[in-house]
Write a protein that binds this DNA or RNA. Structure first.
Length: 404
RNA sequence: GUGGGUAUAGCUCAGUUUGGUUAGAGCACCAGGUUGUGGCCCUGGGGGCCGUGGGUUCAAGUCCCACUACUCACCCCA
């Protein structure tokens, strides 16, 4: 299906590495995992993400279930978690720093770094007003990118809140209306729908006009301004480098005041910000929030790790399957990583396979070995081998595998 | 939703300009060289409705049209 991908064994180690690294960082900083359903009532996203956003207008996988209720495959993680937060009354819980990992769905044209089913790792922190938590969220990201050895630029901005953003939008509209005919077709459409987007247009004419446009920072309210400067202070204390980008805008309606993106090669790997009204908008109490999400596929695509060998021992079974099963069971009990062959193949082809699997040891068994309750233990690296009694197997293997 | 590109072996691609016998290479796979011993080497082998359908022609992988899939960009987004 268009935009849906199989994740194959050859890349699975990258996925494990990414997710293990993220989980480790979260766990060390007191974040607890939360797992919410992939399917939610459509209203959760309409109200949460914002029903005039592109995501809700044209990108959701929405359908009626058998009872006729409109349901939607989650296009992002935050709205569902906020719903769970409200329903389970988690505001009284000590666990207010949460993380999640899982698939998201958006019906859009696939291209580089974009899929219809994609995977995100994200976090949400509830009820913490202090700008330090915004900085902590960013710190989590810098830690992760550091461990993954991925270079990113951090861009931040203050996009205001419902108290101050409408005034700014008004100011933008009245400014750009004077140049309406000179703007590109896209920007003319944006003028009333999302005037902030005009600031980000790549059209040369629009860029020139945008230079004289009112600045957002002249319009943000006192609270937004104080919060933003607070985060900047924290980032400096953490020695985290950032670029202030006044053109940075978020596509989801729920963001307020502080927002950020981690960018690598023009592709946003991770993004997030504060959403102080979302919980109330979805029917909860007046509780603030801040969070982020990163796209796993985009990380996997640039992740550079050397694959680990997956097995220690390959059992080359020359037609003595029951004997082979006994040895497999024994080695498995001893916690060795072992791969057993059952098909009738030549020894040569089995050794070849052992080599490909990067087994350190190959155990060879056939009629001769069965009769004498023995096996051949071959050290694949040194090409040396010896026949041993089965009761010596554990010690012999330890000697070969753990030799320095 | 809009625009561009591509489609030949499991994978990466030649061949298409200028139509002409049996469609190639590298890698991968299998076998033999070594009767029960991997990597390197040598020899051989299997594997193709040349994306699908139609058209032009004595003749189409090659030219024309349509469709589909994939891909990149825009919009937007992680």
């Amino acid at each position: 299906m268009k935009g849906f991908k199989d994740i194959l064994p050859e890349t699975i180690e990258k996925w494990h590495f990414l997710e293990k690294t993220a989980v480790k960082i979260f766990t060390h900083l007191g974040y607890k995992e939360i797992r919410t359903p992939i399917l939610e009532k459509t209203s959760v996203f309409e109200r949460g993400v914002g029903d005039s956003t592109d995501i809700v207008e044209k990108e959701m996988y929405t359908f009626l279930d058998k009872s006729g209720e409109s349901v939607t495959l989650r296009p992002e993680g935050t709205a569902g978690i906020v719903r769970a937060f409200i329903e389970n009354k988690l505001e009284t819980s000590v666990f207010n720093k949460l993380y999640y990992i899982g698939p998201m769905f958006r019906y859009e044209r696939p291209q580089k770094g974009r899929f219809r089913q994609f995977h995100q790792i994200g976090a949400e922190c509830f009820g913490i007003k202090n700008p330090a938590i915004d900085a902590e969220i960013i710190y989590v990201n810098t830690l992760l990118f550091e461990k993954l050895n991925i270079k990113t630029n951090l861009e931040i901005n203050n996009i205001g809140c419902p108290n101050c953003r409408p005034q700014y939008s008004k100011a933008l509209i009245s400014y750009f209306e004077h140049y309406k005919e000179s703007l590109c077709i896209d920007c003319q459409k944006r003028l009333y729908k999302n005037p902030l987007r005009i600031l980000d247009c790549k059209n040369e004419k629009c860029k020139i006009i945008a230079r004289g446009a009112p600045k957002l920072k002249d319009y943000v309210c006192k609270d937004c301004k104080e919060h933003y400067t607070g985060v900047v202070e924290c980032l400096k204390a953490l020695n985290i480098e950032f670029i202030e980008n006044e053109l940075l805008v978020r596509g989801l309606d729920y963001y307020t005041s502080f927002v950020f993106e981690f960018v690598n090669n023009n592709l946003t790997l991770s993004a997030g910000g504060r959403y102080d009204n979302l919980i109330q908008d979805l029917g909860g109490n007046n509780i603030c929030g801040v969070g982020f999400a990163l796209g796993e596929e985009r990380i996997i695509d640039i992740l550079d790790i050397k694959p680990q060998n997956s097995i220690d021992i390959y059992i080359a079974n020359l037609g003595v399957t029951l004997y082979a099963l006994n040895i497999l069971q024994k080695l498995s009990d001893l916690q060795f990583k072992v791969y057993c062959e059952y098909e009738n193949k030549s020894l040569k082809s089995m050794l070849k396979k052992a080599d490909k699997l990067e087994a350190k040891v190959c155990i060879i068994i056939g009629e001769n070995e069965l009769k004498s309750s023995s096996c051949i233990v071959r050290d694949m690296k040194n090409s040396t081998q010896k026949t041993i009694e089965l009761n010596q197997l554990e010690n012999t293997l330890k000697g070969v595998l753990y030799a320095t």
